[in-house]
């Protein structure tokens, strides 16, 4: 299936969870926030949250800023 990750299309297998995707991307789960279709996913739900076709996922983190 296809989802949109940070605005770009991304193809994943049907059984992929948020935890699996973060692992595949090499993103440490402790330093990011996951938003799925504008709802924040709590870290303890990463392993049990899977995707629907066309889901909009945002991976956000802190950067330097004023």
């Amino acid at each position: 299936m296809q989802i949109h990750l940070n605005g770009s299309p991304k193809t994943i297998t049907d059984s992929t969870t948020v935890a699996m995707l973060l692992h595949e991307l090499g993103v440490p789960s402790t330093s990011v926030v996951v938003e799925l279709n504008k709802t924040i996913i709590q870290p303890d739900c990463y392993a049990t949250t899977s995707f629907q076709d066309n889901d909009q996922m945002e991976l956000i983190r802190f950067v330097g800023g004023g």
């Binding site: 990750l5 940070n6 991976l59 956000i60 983190r61 950067v63 800023g65």
Partner: peptide, 19 residues
């Protein structure tokens, strides 16, 4: 100190200001 929020740069996924 102030910080901003941005999309993770998927080319540099380890980059982390918090550390």
């Amino acid at each position: 100190v102030t910080v901003a929020l941005r999309r993770v740069d998927l080319e540099n996924p380890q980059d982390d200001i918090m550390s």
